[in-house]
Every structure is written in structure tokens, then in C-alpha cells.
Design a protein around this nucleic acid. Structure first.
Lengths: 246, 246
DNA sequence: GCAATAGTGTCTTTCAGACACTATATC
DNA sequence: GATATAGTGTCTGAAAGACACTATTGC
């Protein structure tokens, strides 16, 4: 295998060109919470390799684009969404993770409230919102299965199962010392909705008074003074995330 | 800019070849603790760009090599060490972080006890063990400065200052719920030495009885029955890390 | 016995879990 | 007032911080 490049009139090959280069992609673990379940956006592969299996949306990193920018672009192009909470997860680079060529992928996770998924899901038939089956299993959880609408496990392409597991693990780890959980909720939400999100991610029930105490003492929330409507019982107070300091 | 590649007799260009590829490197944040100070191995750059400035040891990822394997190889080649605790940190890919070409680097941190550094430091003159000046500053710390033997801050190459800051932050975050701290100690160590390592990394003093209680209750340690020698006062008990379960 | 650090007993403080209780909306 | 959930008061228990105390070695 040989590589030849036109580099701008350099007299000799620099060290950068001595070895063949891997391709670099970004893959997106685009998660949400619906009906107390953690979900992830998957795309059905039409072509080999792994035709028919389900993959995370991804794309190549362009030469003039940062990794974060590539992730944002993939979010916009493949999932037709923007403005998600987006964060680098980990880089996967086993030599034959893509059987065709050497491809290193930088995985990102992206979080959006469920309502923001609607548009993307209706107009592209190869996308699905899979439910993630996660058990508690001592703090960071075990393996993760992605279930289709019929409840059957979806076969995943490449090493995307590993990426998914790590995304859930990372999400769990950051949940209660960062503001990450709020990215899965609309602007105004009740404390119960917030607790539901946390329980869905952790895969276990939480103590209500303790949860409310902790969240309110963090100082991240402010009351809107408004309440839910149409509940049929006592409506809960609506909170919002305080604008970021600084 | 144009790229031409000989790919093994494929009839047409695959998507993988449509765009120019970035180069991919690994950079190593090789840390240790000496005299209650966190230290990092830096290498003085002899050539442009950033000639004379200090850089993390790094190298290109080869096509048949995983990212982890590349990090291990760089550890062996550039730092003449092996067997370190090694862990992927983050990938850095701003378009012009290397002014010559597009280079994406996957940063790793590696931890070794101080004694293991001796060989590498004596026979290569372009390496130095810089002291990291880290303040406590609320949990994860602020910016990090690398100080030379004379106490002056060393100017760093590329975005290696950012990588260094993130490495310290990550190390702090993982310190007390993983066994990572033991990677900086010899096989047998006293609880005071362990506490010194933790204090050096966190940049703040810890409570002795609470620290001892926590460490012993974790179940990670076992007593060797031996004691320090040559102290001039009551010698401390030597502990070792229990063999990993499973 | 003195010096110096190893190692511990125990009180206080903090915070999460448990659980029952009160509050308040719709109907 | 019945119902269903919102929201709270308070007890308990686990674990960290503080601080003083005892233990043990070399000299």
C-alpha cells in the first residue's frame, strides 16, 4: 500500500507522510428519555459491511473542521437536529473495527429532549429510536441492549455496541454532579420529571425527598412560579435551569 | 490539495478516499509523584514548529496498530518504559493545532512510580521531569503550569497545556473511586505514602484518620506484615494492593 | 526517657434513605 | 369530599472531618 500526496511544494516528504493514514470519523450516540426509558437514535445500514444492521449516525471528519464541529455537522445532516448537549465520549481505533479500511472513530454523545426528535423521525424511514435496556448492576451497569419498537434486540454494526455501553456508563457517571440531566428535559419541567429522567438513566428508583433536597440545594434550579395544567390532581410546580453563571 | 491512493484494485474510489485524511497521533501524559509533587515527563523539541519548547512524548498511530498499542509503543520508544498504568484521556483535533498539517491526537495518560523513571532520565538529555503546579481551586482545579528544575514555568508546544490540564483533572476525578493511585507507588508502601500521593494529586491536605479508614474499608489493600526500616522512629506497616479479583 | 511519627477512639457534622405525614389541585 | 399526586418534617444510619489521644520504634 502506497500513499502519494501533493503537499504544497515541500521539497521532501515530512514525517507526516511516511505512514499511511487512518480515516477519522465521528459517531454520535444521540440519546433521549421517553416514558421513563432511555432511548438512542439508530440508523439502519443499507450497504455492506453490516448491511441491515443498526449503526450510530456518523461521518468523516473534514480537514478544516474540528472534532466538535464534525459532531455538530453530523447531528445536523444525519439526524436533522441541532442545539443538542454534545460531548466527546471516547475514541475507538481497533485496527479492523471497520473491515474495509482503517477507520478511527471519535464517539460523541448528544442529548436532546424527546420532543426535539419528532421531526427527524417522521421524514427519514431508516432511523429508529431504540429503547436501551439497562440494568442497575452496581453503579455503572453491565452490557446494554438496544431494543426496537417490537421489543426485540437490534443487531448493531461495527463496535457500536461497545460505544453504546460506554455512553450509558459515562452518562450515569456524570448525571449527578453535572447539569447533564437537564439536557433531556424541556425548558420548564417539574421535579418529578427530573427524577424520572434520573431514574431512567440509572435504571433504579430514587428516594423522593432526598432527590428533591439535593436538586434544590445544588442551586441550579429556579422556580418559574407556574404550575402544570391538565393533571386531574394537584399540579406540580414548574422549574427551569438557571442561566449559566458568568 | 489532492490525494491519490493505490487501494488494492478497487474499481472505484470508496467514500473513505473522497476527503483528505488527517494524520493521527497519540500523545502521552506520563505522570509520577516525587517529594509530594505531581510530575510529568516532557521532551524538548529540537525542530520547528515550537523548537525549544516542551512537548509531551508522542508518535503516529500505525495502520495495523490499535490506539492503545500505539500508546504503549510510544511509552517504550520515547520514554524507554513499559508496564505503566495507561488510559485514554481525550482526543484533540482543532484544525490548526499543528501548524504544518492536520493532526488529530489521541491523548493518553500513563502513571508510573518515581523509581521507574530513573533509567529513562539519565540517558536521554532532551527529557525532563517537570513539576506540576496545581492548586486546589474547588474540586477539579484550574490551569496547570509545568515547572522546570529551576522552578521556572516551561513553555509548552502545541495544545499540550490543555492536554496537561485535562489529565490532572481526570486524574483527580478518578483518584478516589478507582485503584489509579496505586500505580504511582511501588509494590509495597505505607498508608502515609499513599496519602502523600493523594495529597500531591489533589493539591490539598487530607484528614488522616478518615483517609486510613476509607482506604482500609475499600478492601483493596492487604497487609504484608512487614514494616519500614531505617526511619529513626516508629516504622509504618507496609501494605500491598490485593491481586485483582477474577 | 526523648523525639518523632504511626495508628486509634470518639465526638461532631453532614447528608442520604425511609416513611409517614400534610397540602392542594381536579372532579 | 374523594382521589391522586405534590411536597415536607423528621428519624435513622453511614461516613467524613476534627482533634486529641495512645503506641512504638531508634536513639
Amino acid at each position: 500500500m502506497h500513499i502519494m500526496m501533493n503537499r504544497q511544494n515541500e521539497p521532501k516528504m515530512s514525517e507526516l507522510d511516511r505512514y499511511p493514514k487512518p480515516a477519522v470519523t465521528v459517531d454520535l450516540v444521540l440519546m433521549s428519555v421517553q416514558d421513563a426509558r432511555l432511548t438512542v437514535l439508530l440508523q439502519r445500514r443499507a450497504t455492506e459491511p453490516f448491511a441491515g444492521r443498526w449503526a450510530l449516525p456518523g461521518g468523516f471528519v473534514r480537514v478544516e473542521e474540528s472534532l466538535d464541529a464534525a459532531a455538530e455537522r453530523v447531528l445536523a445532516e444525519k439526524a436533522r437536529m441541532q442545539g443538542a448537549w454534545i460531548e466527546q465520549l471516547y475514541s475507538f481505533g481497533a485496527p479492523h473495527r471497520d473491515p474495509r479500511d482503517r477507520v478511527i472513530t471519535v464517539a460523541y454523545f448528544a442529548l436532546l429532549p424527546r420532543a426535539r426528535f419528532e421531526a427527524a423521525l417522521t421524514d427519514a424511514g431508516d432511523l429508529t429510536l431504540a429503547t436501551l435496556e439497562v440494568s442497575w448492576e452496581g453503579e455503572t451497569g453491565g452490557p446494554v441492549a438496544a431494543l426496537g419498537p417490537d421489543g426485540a434486540a437490534l443487531p448493531l454494526a461495527f463496535d457500536h455496541g461497545d460505544i453504546l455501553s460506554l455512553a450509558v456508563k459515562r452518562l450515569r457517571g456524570k448525571l449527578d454532579y453535572t447539569e447533564i440531566g437537564f439536557a433531556l428535559l424541556p425548558d420548564r419541567f417539574t421535579l418529578r420529571e427530573l427524577q424520572d429522567v434520573h431514574e431512567a438513566i440509572l435504571g433504579r428508583p430514587l428516594n423522593k425527598p432526598a432527590f428533591r433536597r439535593r436538586m434544590l440545594e445544588r442551586g441550579w434550579l429556579e422556580s418559574t412560579g407556574e404550575r402544570e395544567t391538565g393533571t386531574g390532581f394537584r399540579p406540580a410546580e414548574l422549574y427551569r435551569l438557571k442561566p449559566r453563571k458568568g
